[in-house]
Design a protein around this nucleic acid. Structure first.
Lengths: 215, 215
DNA sequence: AGCTAAAATGAATAGTGATTCACGATTCAT
DNA sequence: ATGAATCGTGAATCACTATTCATTTTAGCT
């Protein structure tokens, strides 16, 4: 069986290489070079081979998006399910997301905002929806605890995610060096602002960065 | 000269018909049926004729976008330049925008959020930028007047526009009947929430709809 | 080695849609 | 009326890519 196992391993490894190549390509230049031929070349296989592993281009990218987004959603979910006041967790969740998005900016932009063909777009929406779900869940908690003002959690979640996504990777968002002080300040400010929408009282927690002076 | 004038009028009228056809097509089904051939048919001319009046498809749509957005930007700008406290004007500006966007939802979505080819997208960004500019301008005033917390106006403008755009016409935004009570409440809540990000104190103006009960 | 099935190949196919252009129709100044 | 200029036409062309498939290569088996 070890021979058969080796064979299967090689197959799955090729599959992985294709997925990885697709992810890299998008992370590098966005959907512009997301053509099947390009991915195949990058993975070191012929174009036809891609279709041995994936039914269609859309299928391939649906899987890539799923893979990439799962991690991000998990990070946010972990914060949402953590301890402490909802207000604090909301800021932290956004902040965590923001920090991560500011590395792989190109990928984050492609995932969140860049125009692409409708078929792939459908897969992208699942990611956005999942993200908004986490936020909505947290908002519900915050309302129940009396920390947040009483609004429709879904609507509020849209506003909050819209706010930080636009500021982070929106087409107008400024390019910042991932590790610069400016980027860190921006991440904190974005998190603080987006969360403030829901705060019952302006005064934030003890050592929260909200509302600091202009950088 | 009246004959020459008539000729020119006919020419510009054809041009207008093409522009109008393009706008209608996008308003109806989004970028899906924004093909040159389709527009031409809708305007009652041959495809080639379109190219007598516009250098390229991108040019045509750049003009369409400019025409449509100018109106919206003017509406917002008027509110921004109005009287009263900045906080109130911010809510009003967003509210005005929201009401208008909720009619022509399909067009608003196409303008603000729908994926489309990169060339047209470039033109779309101008609209977003112009909108963010108005908001940023207002935020600057609000900060100067001490009404808003002190943050980078550009960053805050991104957050605010992102918040209401996502909630209004984002791909996850709920479909509502344009004139229903639900839509009106949503518009008010969105405006209230988005603006709250910047408020120094939670308590809104005298008869502001902010923070009302869940609809 | 010879055989077979799975796997890989990449040239050919096909669909889409923007753009061009050679030609006929119209208009208008003379 | 005439012909040069302008306008309108729509079939043909071009560019781009996803997808297919006949063929070749590889790997395991006897």
């Amino acid at each position: 069986m070890t021979v058969a196992a080796a064979r299967i391993e090689k197959l799955t490894e090729t599959r992985q290489r294709i997925l990885e190549a697709a992810r890299e390509a998008v992370a590098l230049n966005g959907w512009r070079n997301a053509q099947v031929a390009h991915i195949a070349a990058r993975a070191g296989v012929a174009t036809g081979t891609v279709y041995r592993y994936f039914n269609s281009k859309a299928d391939l990218y649906a899987e890539v998006l799923g893979l990439v987004s799962r991690r991000e959603i998990e990070v946010v979910a972990a914060v949402v399910d953590g301890d402490g006041p909802a207000a604090r967790r909301l800021v932290d969740a956004i902040h965590a997301f923001a920090r991560r998005a500011m590395r792989g900016r190109r990928l984050a932009y492609a995932l969140l905002a860049e125009p692409c063909e409708p078929e792939i777009d459908a897969a992208r929406l699942k990611y956005r929806a999942a993200l908004a779900d986490q936020v909505a869940r947290l908002i519900e908690q915050g309302i129940a605890d009396g920390e947040f003002i009483e609004v429709d959690p879904r609507l509020a979640a849209s506003c909050v995610t819209g706010a930080f996504m636009e500021a982070l990777v929106g087409p107008l968002a400024p390019e910042t060096e991932p590790h610069s002080r400016a980027a860190q300040t921006a991440a904190r400010n974005i998190a603080g602002l987006a969360a403030r929408m829901l705060f019952r009282q302006t005064a934030p927690g003890p050592d929260s960065p909200i509302g600091g002076p202009i950088p």
